[in-house]
Write a protein that binds this DNA or RNA. Structure first.
Lengths: 233, 233, 233, 233
DNA sequence: CATGAATGAGAGTTCATTCAT
DNA sequence: GATGAATGAACTCTCATTCAT
């Protein structure tokens, strides 16, 4: 429900000093807040201008810093992006993992729960969808090291795994399950693609209904003879 | 109709220079062919590297030119991109406009024809989808002037209009129609999003069936009492 | 005698056009001259300011260029230094290889010829000695890639080899010969060290006599039982 | 005599902090020790990385400090280098001044004593030779102010003066004496140049014999009619 | 005295663009 | 029409230095 990431942690007004008596309580709290400030500024800049379009100077300006100051918190521009997207996928992971159907035991309900968690995450945090842009497109922009790209891709696979596993438990072949999950992800991405670009506003409200319809269709394509548990994975 | 800049002459096979002895009657054909050569090179470069990732030097190298030579044909790098995407939207426009149902007179068939034309265009020309990347995402990257961005957005709206009009003819409110069309476009974009990035391969073959299912669902939501307002607009 | 490297190749005054009729004669002659111009500017800058002290901006300014223009000729600042020192060692190599004693057959005369060639090269081209500074000190400054460093070290070894071989032919053990050659090199470097820094001027004229005295002492230390030729190398 | 900044207190073993309970009587001794700690760290860093290659951050890290803390002891990075080299020349000065021949009265013995003291100083403290690198080369690197450079040069002249004076006492013209001393210094520098770079090891043991041979040759060049001017200066 | 945050200048490098030839 | 040389602005990043705490 809460959007911890989209909500900016209480950032002290620059220059506003933390009272002395509360300082030793949590060491590094200020630093964390400032790091989050940079991340928030970077998130906005990447959102509007893209990975390469958003210069470090621009990010710094939005955060109220000099470019050099960013390097107190991150080793490189790429690492800012990596921290942002990595943390986003982490939250997605947790969100999907935490979701479970109201009635236990029903396999289709499990699939529905996982898939809906997936959808809802991006519905409630549309900027995270945008952040993963290059990742989802399989792009390799100049500013992104193959090493980081692979690390992020692995995280995305992890996030998709629970839904895929649920489908396998429902009787799908592993490969088909993966295909379906990818299609699902594509659907979500497409459905939300334009819903936050200012192109249309009202669409956003309908998107969930459209998604559920899609989900129903997918579940209706369940394999005819449900396999006995045991050989999945 | 189209501005000369936006017209794409039949693109010669890359590297296939028109031999001098077969110079066609029409003066300036050579120039057009070379212009097209540059555009083809730029299309490939933009596709692989993105708008900012593809340098003019890279584009020129692929076209067999020096960077300076590009300026014989285009005023700026941005204009190369604009010509490319503008022409792509032009072709989309024509493709959608040319489509019509087998049986005339049936309103749903018209919608289906228009929507399918839309889908097939991008299915058959996935690179055009990728080219419109920044446009579809509402981005404003460093290398793209707001003026050009708006011009391109207008073209996209034109391309979406026929389908929207067909829905209105079917009885939808204008605003609802536009919403549905945008959703349709988003669906297409999402469906095709991952189909050419190497993430999955088999999905590509299923995408049309998935699209038709989506289209059926949309038509099934047609407004109860078909209005007789005729053709507004 | 001639100092081809220290002498600047006839560089056309910037903006002075080469007459048209002479242009097709030697393609690239202009480019070579300008490359040499950059190298000469870099040599001077490195000499006065050191490898890290001489900025690309400074080098460019001395050459009458913008920093970016340097990259038309060299891929990096390090490559400028590498070209400079590499070519210097190349000339040293050739100079030593070309030297031979007046009377053939005398082994000590051969050693003397090789060693003197070595000494004279740096005596006549003192800036080359300075250029190799980091190399001779075995330093690994920030601006120098290990790869380049190794390549240059290999070239220096090649230049020292003829003298070492001559000593081996004289009857020294290979390892002793190498030690002596290194000592010789150190002596040369020390002797010339201050002779071109403006600290003293007249010393330069005496340096050769001092060197010959050192050389005599070295030859006087020749191993007692001269080995029969055959097993060297 | 020496400025407090230039005085080097007995350098504590790196990492060996003086325990608080043994705090010596003299106030400020702790501060001096910490200052020396910084100097020792800087010496090592400059030795390995050069003047510009060694960042303040690196120096501070080796001393167990943050960069800002350095400014409690030195006004600038340049001043650290100045203190280091200045103190080195000071020690050289004292070492040469303290040396005297076994048998008093012999003028050549005095020269030999002074010159040998000079050589031995650098033989026993090769890092000091390396530290004076930029000075001995007459370089003006980016990080070195002309003012400091001149101050250090004056100190070097002071250190060379006793030997030069001894030569004058032996009958040389003042100018010739200075030339000889500079040559001597160059010889020392060259002889020791490679003895601590790992290039060769055994050479180090021979260096003194080679130096004495050189010294003999120099003394043999003594002017024919020894002057009786006594002690000028 | 020492820290951690921040600055501003400057580093090497890339790139769209211009222009004489 | 095309080239090669060159520019100038912008980029990411480093570093000596300052200062409130």
């Amino acid at each position: 429900m809460a959007k911890p990431v989209e909500t900016l942690p209480a950032v002290p007004a620059r220059g506003g000093r933390t009272p002395r008596e509360t300082r030793p309580a949590r060491e590094g709290s200020d630093a964390d807040a400032r790091r989050a400030l940079v991340l928030a500024a970077a998130r906005a800049a990447f959102f509007e201008l893209g990975l390469e379009g958003a210069s470090l100077r621009e990010i710094a300006k939005r955060a109220g810093y000099t470019p050099g100051a960013i390097y107190s918190y991150f080793a490189s521009k790429e690492e800012v992006y990596g921290a942002l997207l990595g943390e986003s996928l982490e939250r997605l992971n947790e969100h999907v993992a935490a979701s479970s159907p109201a009635r236990k035991g029903s396999a289709p309900a499990l699939v529905r729960a996982k898939a809906t968690a997936f959808f809802d995450f991006y519905r409630q945090n549309p900027r995270d969808l945008d952040l993963g842009f290059y990742l989802f497109h399989g792009m390799q922009p100049r500013g992104l090291t193959p090493a980081l790209n692979q690390r992020l891709n692995a995280r995305l696979r992890d996030a998709l795994a629970p839904t895929s596993d649920a489908l396998v438990a429902l009787g799908w072949h592993a490969q088909d399950a993966q295909t379906e999950v990818t299609a699902l992800f594509a659907h979500i991405a497409g459905l939300l693609l334009l819903s936050h670009t200012g192109r249309i506003r009202m669409f956003h409200q309908e998107s969930r209904a459209l998604f559920e319809r899609y989900l129903d269709a997918m579940l209706a394509r369940a394999p005819a003879p449900p396999k006995t548990r045991g050989e999945q994975r």
